[in-house]
Design a protein around this nucleic acid. Sequence first.
DNA 1: ATGGTCGAAAGTCGA
Length: 261
Amino acid sequence: MRIATWNVNSIRSRIDRVTGWLERNDVDVLAIQETKCREDQFPGLELSAMGYDYAHFGLNQWNGVALISRVGLDDIATSFADDQPMFGDPEIVEARSIGATCGGVRVWSFYVPNGRTLEDPHYVYKLAWLERLRLASIEWLAENPRGEIALTGDWNVAPQDEDVWDMSVFEGHTHVSKPERDAFQAILDAGYADVVRPHTPGEFTYWDYQQLAFPKKRGLRIDFILASEALASRVDRAWIDREERKGKGASDHAPVVIEIT
DNA sequence: ATGGTCGAAAGTCGA
């Protein structure tokens, strides 16, 4: 079984890319982020026609997450906790998480808040969001220590210096600050492993659209698949589909894939 | 190709 995560940066402008990629890559479960649309705008017919079920949570033109599966889609949740941190005026639970059980695996698609700048309220929100997710992640394993759980998505954190094309450019920026890195590490410490990094040393998952970042290899590793121990032990292969970042109409993120036995 | 983003309430925000 193949499970993937991909920040598609608008599902409506990328649907042909997504269906084509699914066809070529034999992926069973795809977690997507930044659908940037409401439920009634989600292009579900194209996915249904391919034999995939989907669950989408989108409120407006911002954020939006979905799960696309051809191995079942049960027990759908559109927040990771009853008190998932809120943002906005008025404050709302944004469309940043959706979970479902697919082929026996509890799969989550997360779009972690960006943070914007270290002084922005969005940064405080980001850290609170990650801390609440840590607690939820602990609870899921406490309920079922042998559970197969995949925490996937755009984490908006570059956990290691090697995950950034030039650390000097990121001095004082979000994504690399110690509190963000500590928050990400704390979720690993809760009992989850980055099952892609060992298979993809030195690779990035995101390249800005600006300044020819992709051809200049100026990227970041901010998209991750974290697996509980029971799931991690089943991972045979993992890769980042850098080819999908190429060409006209590409998302600024590449898909990240794991293959399990 | 020899410069330089893209997508979304459509004006400007967010990334």
